[in-house]
């Protein structure tokens, strides 16, 4: 079984981001960039499927400027067999990322597409669902457990009410939630080896992607700051403070 995994280059999750004073975006110069944490989980799942003898080939794909090749190299170091870079000046919005990935999927014919449930920069949580729609495939979003059978997958999904179980026919798009697995770290020799591996470039023109208009960014602002609070020193004082605010009878 061939598994396609998409990886996005995002600001590292530990970075405290700063909004540019002119409101045009967030500061990215000199900021540490990493693979989106949910994509790491999706890739780890693919690697485990390969180790279990269920997946035969893992293809990692990323869309964006030249720099995304860094994350593709990480994917190769971790265990992806091939890496595909779809070059664009900037990462597209989900509506167009899904369109490009759909064309790539039509070319590559994977039986499973694993993706992160959301990217931690735009927090959209859309691309897997849109990709599944464009391909007419089943989707199982927010997966915390995947059991593969011959032509189907049983997926436990993290929903507001608890855990929902779906049975989907393959091929399918599955998006990874946090608790699907704990991703491994790449080993140094594998990182060295991945440096020499080829990365295929497939342009949007090669794929014949038809992009649609995206939302226009007007402004980025820092969130309103909460008023500085006060410290109390005892439970009695805490209860009194809550009463004062009318929060306790």
């Amino acid at each position: 079984m061939k598994v396609l995994v998409s990886v996005k280059r995002v600001v590292d999750y530990n970075v405290r981001i700063q909004v540019k004073p002119d409101g045009s975006g967030v500061m990215l110069d000199g900021v540490k960039m990493s693979m989106n944490p949910f994509d790491e989980i999706a890739l780890e799942e693919a690697i485990r499927l390969k180790e279990a003898g269920k997946a035969t080939q893992i293809v990692a794909v990323s869309i964006g400027p030249q720099a995304v090749q860094e994350q593709l190299r990480s994917a190769l170091a971790l265990g992806a067999d091939r890496a595909i870079h779809i070059p664009l000046d900037a990462a597209p919005q989900p509506v167009n990322a899904a369109r490009a990935l759909a064309e790539l999927a039509r070319r590559e014919n994977p039986e499973l597409i694993l993706m992160g449930k959301q990217a931690i920069d735009d927090d959209c949580n859309q691309t897997p669902q849109m990709l599944a729609a464009l391909l007419g495939w089943p989707q199982a979003t927010f997966a915390s457990k995947i059991e593969l059978a011959d032509k189907t997958a049983t997926v436990a999904r993290e929903v507001d009410a608890g855990l929902e179980f779906l049975l989907v026919d393959l091929p399918a798009v599955i998006s990874a939630d946090l608790r699907l697995n704990i991703p491994r770290y790449p080993k140094l020799p594998d990182i060295m080896k991945a440096r020499r591996l080829p990365i295929e470039t497939v342009t949007p023109e090669d794929l014949g992607v038809e992009f649609v208009p995206e939302a226009r960014l007007l402004k980025v602002a820092p969130p309103p700051k909460r008023q500085a609070g006060r410290k109390v020193v005892s439970v009695d004082e805490l209860v009194a403070a809550l009463r004062e605010r009318g929060l306790l009878s």
Binding site: I17, V19, V26, D123, A215, L217, V220, P223
Partner: peptide, 12 residues
């Protein structure tokens, strides 16, 4: 909200 609510974007 974007970036875990650490920034707010206005979009059209």
């Amino acid at each position: 909200p974007i970036y875990a609510g650490n920034a707010l974007e206005t979009i059209e």
